[in-house]
């Protein structure tokens, strides 16, 4: 019973980590950079949804679309303001710039949504009463989250396998110089990549908000979990990010349940350390090198 509970909550948060991690990997694969403000994109997305849904009373779907559009625009701005100007600078410049950006976004979050109360509640989307599935109590919100994450992944897969924009993104990730020579508008591909990556964080935020509490400082812990997921899955592999995200969610729920609840928050660090020591390429690392 306890195990079932831990698993169901682990899978739910794991699915969300997977979504955030996929956005992180998408940007990394195409641009070669880790966006250290990715967690803050998540935070802003969540608060945009909060403003639209809780403060203004607009329907949930409007909040979802608003948060996705808002974080997409933030991603595009990241491209314009940080990535494009520094594209020829040494990699450390990009690290510093995205870390800096994370502080700026956190400041914006605190200014608009922080301060008065430490945390803001987001009402559950569906009935909060748990339902029994095979004798296990599951919150309907958890089912909604998992289903939505699956839908997002399917859409993303469709995007990569079926659309020209997806092929161009793949081509740019594989060989940006060749993509440029072939006439692909590489800058536009980068812009789209940052936008889509950020939008994924925004989607995740809208689903997380009713489950946990939003705070302007939530970004860093989310980034760490997504980072643990990508390291575990093998940096650069999208499938790896999904598997890694689920595993991080499940492992931290199990650790929190069976070891000590204080372990839950540091389990992402432990996973990062353990993977880097024992299997630096991650679970799908060896394959990821041959994958795009």
């Amino acid at each position: 019973m306890l195990l079932a509970y831990a698993l169901s909550s682990g899978i739910t948060s794991g699915a969300l980590y997977a979504l955030v991690a996929v956005g992180l990997v998408l940007c990394y694969r195409t641009t070669g950079h880790i966006n250290f403000s990715h967690g803050e994109l998540f935070m802003i997305g969540g608060f945009l949804a909060f403003t639209l849904h809780v403060m203004w009373g607009l329907p949930y779907i409007v909040a979802l679309l608003g948060a996705v559009a808002g974080s997409f625009v933030l991603g595009v701005l990241t491209d314009r303001v940080v990535y494009q100007p520094l594209i020829k600078a040494p990699p450390i410049a990009m690290v510093m710039a995205t870390v800096g950006l994370s502080f700026v976004l956190k400041g914006i979050g605190r200014h608009f949504w922080g301060g008065q109360g430490e945390v803001v509640p987001f009402p559950p989307l569906v009935s909060p009463a748990p339902v029994l599935i095979g004798g296990v109590a599951v919150f309907p919100q958890q089912l909604v989250v998992v289903a939505s994450v699956v839908v997002c992944m399917l859409l993303l897969t469709l995007f990569f396998t079926r659309t020209r924009a997806g092929k161009m993104m793949q081509a740019t990730a594989e060989n940006a110089h060749a993509a440029y020579l072939v006439g692909i508008r590489v800058e536009r591909v980068y812009m789209l990549t940052w936008g889509v990556g950020a939008a994924l964080a925004g989607v995740a935020a809208v689903f997380v908000a009713p489950l946990t509490l939003l705070t302007p400082d939530i970004g860093l812990s989310l980034l760490l979990k997504a980072f643990a997921a990508t390291i575990l899955g093998g940096l650069g592999s999208m499938t790896g990010a999904v598997i890694g995200g689920l595993l991080v969610g499940i492992l931290e729920a199990l650790a929190g349940t069976y070891i000590a609840s204080s372990i839950q928050d540091v389990s992402a660090f432990i996973i990062i350390l353990a993977v880097l020591v024992f299997r630096p390429t991650g679970l799908l690392g060896a394959r990821a090198r041959r994958e795009v």
């Binding site: 020209r164 092929k167 793949q170 081509a171 594989e174 060989n175 993509a179 692909i184 795009v292």
Partner: peptide, 12 residues
């Protein structure tokens, strides 16, 4: 582009 099929390459 490596890792992409012939058709995907053409679509790019």
């Amino acid at each position: 582009f490596k890792g992409m099929t012939v058709l995907e390459n053409v679509m790019a």
